[in-house]
Design a protein around this nucleic acid. Sequence first.
DNA 1: TACTTATTGTGAAACAATTCACATACTCTG
DNA 2: CAGAGTATGTGAATTGTTTCACAATAAGTA
Lengths: 218, 218
Amino acid sequence: MANKDTGKKKISESTIRRLSLYYRALSLLEKENYETIASKELAKREKLTPAQVRKDLSFFGSFGTRGLGYPVTELKHRIAKILGIDRIWNIAMVGVGNIGSALVSYKEFQRQGFSIKLIFDNDQRKIGSNHKGLIVSDIKDMPRLLREHNIQMVVLAVPAIVAQYIIDDVVAAGIKAILNFAPINLQVPDDVYLRNENMSMELEYLSFVISNHYKPKN
Amino acid sequence: MANKDTGKKKISESTIRRLSLYYRALSLLEKENYETIASKELAKREKLTPAQVRKDLSFFGSFGTRGLGYPVTELKHRIAKILGIDRIWNIAMVGVGNIGSALVSYKEFQRQGFSIKLIFDNDQRKIGSNHKGLIVSDIKDMPRLLREHNIQMVVLAVPAIVAQYIIDDVVAAGIKAILNFAPINLQVPDDVYLRNENMSMELEYLSFVISNHYKPKN
DNA sequence: TACTTATTGTGAAACAATTCACATACTCTG
DNA sequence: CAGAGTATGTGAATTGTTTCACAATAAGTA
Ligand SMILES: NC(=O)c1ccc[n+]([C@@H]2O[C@H](COP(=O)([O-])OP(=O)(O)OC[C@H]3O[C@@H](n4cnc5c(N)ncnc54)[C@H](O)[C@@H]3O)[C@@H](O)[C@H]2O)c1
Ligand SMILES: NC(=O)c1ccc[n+]([C@@H]2O[C@H](COP(=O)([O-])OP(=O)(O)OC[C@H]3O[C@@H](n4cnc5c(N)ncnc54)[C@H](O)[C@@H]3O)[C@@H](O)[C@H]2O)c1
């Protein structure tokens, strides 16, 4: 039971998000030449509790050594495997405006295995132009190109008004994972996973916190 | 007890985030000329349950009419007041690179009351240049300018390596709310609220979901 | 090998968030 | 203005998440 992937237990979203934090911390620890790390220290670095770290990891197996801690490099690889980032994902960016261009220029994604392979727009002035070595394709060719280039994830950075229209095409092309920046609630079938990045919401949260002298726990 | 702001009850982060969703939905409903909205319909639009909507709102008062629902425009204003977005916030952007420029160019923030008043960089080629009507200031002048322009929130879009160094100055200038884009865990005093926007984490979450054929509940 | 020390892995307890369910109170219609 | 219908507001029940606390077990030492 121990090591079997997502056996049957319900893994919460917060656990998965914390795995990303652990992964980042472990990458750093590796650079600092740590060989092992105790839940206590890992927790301290990510402002969590040791029990939380151990519980999170225990959902996926038993990776540590009692009395010693967790082997840094091995745990990092195990988490990469769990998160599915021990591979390269082919990504397409739709909309090469302010935010789309910024993301395409961001080298770190590539380095983390999120490889932007195609970029789309409907603006004739942009189509055919070069962005960091990628040629902007016509949105009309998207359905065909997504399949031909074996794209697995799509990032939507288009105006809200056209986002539903475009996501319908993306879904029709068989894409199952989408990250959307448009501030609108998009409809997708049950088997497609859509995640929304909403920067206004973050600012609004900050606004609430300082307006109400509210102290969140973290 | 009903109407008193954050009286003593503990408001959860999820409730506050949902208020942002309600606000957006209400803005739309207003455009569609709805006068009232039932928790059932509001919930449907944001993929939540009616009970959740009612419970969330009930923490802040009693805004609806039994048998009828909530008055759209009034509720929108009430939520704006709760979130503290019934005003203009003065914001400074630090780092005018890929992501910083994208955010500065985004008109919607201004329209929502998040008004970027100052932008900073340390690159001599950028300092003095014009970005959407704003002149890039030298980071060296940041402490003075933040105070002079009565800035309340700072957005950090600088390389991770310098982020802690810069945030220390931001904190020293008396800023209490910071939105950080650098993928690093920054240290701030207890009375400063720091929020991290981590796009890699979102991609990693998508990676987990499709790698594990995992179906999150929403 | 036996003992000390450290830290994991995990049920159980505590705490937190969501959903249920219904009394309450308002609207609408005739 | 009475009765039917509808939808809020909220304690209570349920479900989910975090923390506690400790038995188990490995390392290091002599
Ligand atoms: N820029 C930001 O900082 C920011 C912040 C938060 C959210 N957003 C959201 O991200 C999205 C993009 O924002 P932006 O600032 O980059 O806008 P933008 O206008 O700069 O870019 C949008 C791009 O999409 C392209 N486009 C429009 N219709 C299209 C279609 N039918 N098919 C293909 N491409 C199409 C446009 O040509 C343009 O290049 C918007 O929904 C915006 O609300 C942006
Ligand atoms: N671009 C993206 O899509 C993206 C995505 C996720 C996270 N991030 C993060 O956001 C941050 C910015 O990313 P970017 O792509 O815009 O990088 P960038 O290099 O394009 O921009 C960084 C800017 O910060 C400025 N800067 C550097 N040191 C400074 C200092 N000491 N004081 C003031 N300004 C300074 C640079 O001159 C530059 O203009 C990074 O931490 C990055 O990891 C970016």
